[in-house]
């Protein structure tokens, strides 16, 4: 059994920096805490976000990956989010998109609601789960330099690939603002430009 209590953890910033340095024309689906940080580090017209349907990032990314087999799709998922749609590991492995990279930010807590512990916080291991589901590659990193050294080889090989990144929880929580009536939801604003960019490609 995995023991997460003593595992080395990097900062979320350092983890995302490693990815941002490799960002080219990949479609990236972000969610939860990592999404805001990612959008600042890697602003791009091919960024999508899972906002308002926690757990849906992995399968939204899967649909995009299956529709765009010649373009890489990265999903930057949360551990709590993935727990909500754990069956998606089997769905993704079954569909087996070679262009699919699944990053799981493993901080062990529901950070946006005040860092309450994840169920099985001390044991849960998404890389082992993904391996058992049938992902082509899985890996785990708690050190940013080690992740930086290994990622190019992982990116070069066929997916689906799941990389579990152990990160330290941030000391903050997210407070939802009221949505004014008549506001177009974020996803409805976000995806048509991405679809248009892909259709013009």
């Amino acid at each position: 059994m995995t023991d997460n209590s003593e595992v080395q953890r990097m900062s979320l910033d350092a983890a995302l920096d490693v990815l941002a340095r490799r960002r080219k024309e990949q479609i990236v689906v972000g969610t939860m805490t990592a999404n805001g940080a990612w959008r600042q580090k890697s602003p791009h017209d091919l960024n999508l976000a899972c906002i308002g349907f926690m757990g849906g990032a992995s399968t939204l990314g899967l649909g995009v990956a299956l529709s765009q087999p010649d373009r890489d799709v990265w999903v930057i998922d949360g551990d709590g989010s993935l727990m909500m749609q754990l069956g998606s590991l089997g769905t993704i492995a079954g569909a087996a998109p070679s262009n699919f990279l699944h990053i799981v930010i493993h901080n062990g807590v529901y950070e946006t609601s005040g860092s309450q512990p994840l169920p099985s916080q001390q044991q849960v291991d998404f890389a082992r789960m993904a391996e058992g589901a049938g992902y082509a590659q899985t890996a785990s990193f708690g050190d940013a330099e080690e992740f930086d050294s290994a990622i190019d080889e992982l990116l070069a090989a066929d997916g689906p690939t799941l990389i579990q990144l152990y990160t330290r929880p941030a000391d903050r929580f997210y407070s939802a603002r009221p949505t004014p009536p008549g506001t177009t939801p974020a996803l409805a604003r976000m995806w048509p430009p991405v679809a248009e960019a892909l259709s013009n490609d």
Partner: peptide, 12 residues
């Protein structure tokens, strides 16, 4: 999941 996969396919 099927809803989100369908949406992703439409985007693509």
């Amino acid at each position: 999941e099927a809803v989100a996969v369908s949406a992703g396919l439409i985007i693509g």
